[in-house]
Design a protein around this nucleic acid. Structure first.
Lengths: 136, 136
DNA sequence: ATAATAAATCGTAATCATTACTATTTACAA
DNA sequence: TTGTAAATAGTAATGATTACGATTTATTAT
C-alpha cells in the first residue's frame, strides 16, 4: 500500500484530507514493520506540539477499518503496519527487535478446514517471532 | 495437567502450599479453556473478601513460569489456561464466545523452517478463532 | 469568495489491565 | 514453638487505550 493509494481511499470513502493524516500515513510508508501508537506519537511529536491521543487512536482505528493498516497484539500492546491487503493471503515473521517483517507464504488453514465440523471459523493468526538477520 | 500434578510441581520447586493457590488451580482445572485475570478474580471473590491483585497476578505469572499455565494475548488482555506441556506440540482453536479450545494437531512450522536463513526463530503462534458448536 | 456544517482535533479526564510497594500475616523448617 | 523467608493485603502507580465537551478546520453550497 502506497501513500497516494491510502489518501485516495480516504477521499473515496468521504473522509477529509488533513496534513496530520498524511503524516501518519507517511510514518507507516517510511517505516517497514509493526509499530505502536507510542512509536507514532513520538514521530508526530517532532512536528506537532500537543497532538491529542484522540487523534492518534481515532486515525489508527479508522485506517484499520479501511484496510489501510492491519494490526496485531504483541506483548499486550497493539502494533500496526501497512496493510498487505492486495497481496495474496500470507502471514508474517516479526522481528521482536526492530518490528520488521518477512512474508510467510504458506498458510496452514488450507490443510485443516475440514477438521472443524460444526465450528464457525472467523479468522486465524499465524506469526513467527524472532530476530531478523540485521538484528542478530 | 491435573490439580495434584500442579500442586506437586509447586512443592518440588520449593513454593509454599496455600489454599488460595489450590483454589486458583482448581479454577483452571474446572474451567476448560482460556480465562482472564478478571475471570479468576470473580471466581475467587466468592470465597475471599478483598483478594489482592498482587496475589492473582503473582500466581498467574508464577504458574506460567512453571509451565502449569500457558497464556495468550487476546483483545489486549492476557488469557490463561492449563498448560498442555506434556502433550505433543500442537495449537488451538479458541472459541471467542466461551473461551474453550480445540486442539490443532498440524503445525505449519515443520514446513517452513528452511525459509528463514540468517533468522533466529524463537517462537511462533498459530491460533484459529471462531465459535465452537455449543456456542452457535 | 463566504458562510454553513459536519468532521477533525485538542485538552484532558476516565477507564481498564497490569505492576509496584510497604506492612502484615503465614507456611514451614530448625 | 519460634525464626525466617515467602505469601498476601491494601492500595497506589503506571501504561495503554477510550471518552468527551469545547474548539478548530476542510469541504460544500450559496
Amino acid at each position: 500500500m502506497q501513500l497516494n493509494e491510502a489518501l485516495e481511499t480516504l477521499k473515496n470513502e468521504g473522509y477529509k484530507y488533513t496534513k496530520k493524516r498524511e503524516d501518519i500515513l507517511s510514518f507507516f510508508t517510511e517505516e517497514d514493520g509493526y509499530r505502536t501508537a507510542s512509536d507514532l506519537l513520538n514521530y508526530m511529536a517532532d512536528k506537532y506540539d500537543g497532538l491529542s491521543y484522540d487523534t492518534v487512536y481515532r486515525n489508527l482505528h479508522l485506517f484499520r477499518d479501511l484496510d489501510i493498516l492491519e494490526s496485531t497484539d504483541l506483548n499486550g500492546e497493539k502494533h500496526f503496519r501497512l496493510s498487505c491487503g492486495h497481496d495474496e493471503h500470507h502471514h508474517h515473521f516479526i522481528c521482536h527487535s526492530c518490528g520488521k517483517t518477512k512474508t510467510i507464504k504458506a498458510c496452514p488453514m488450507n490443510y485443516i478446514q475440514q477438521d472443524f465440523p460444526g465450528y464457525t471459523i472467523e479468522n486465524h493468526k499465524f506469526e513467527i517471532y524472532g530476530k531478523c538477520p540485521a538484528c542478530q
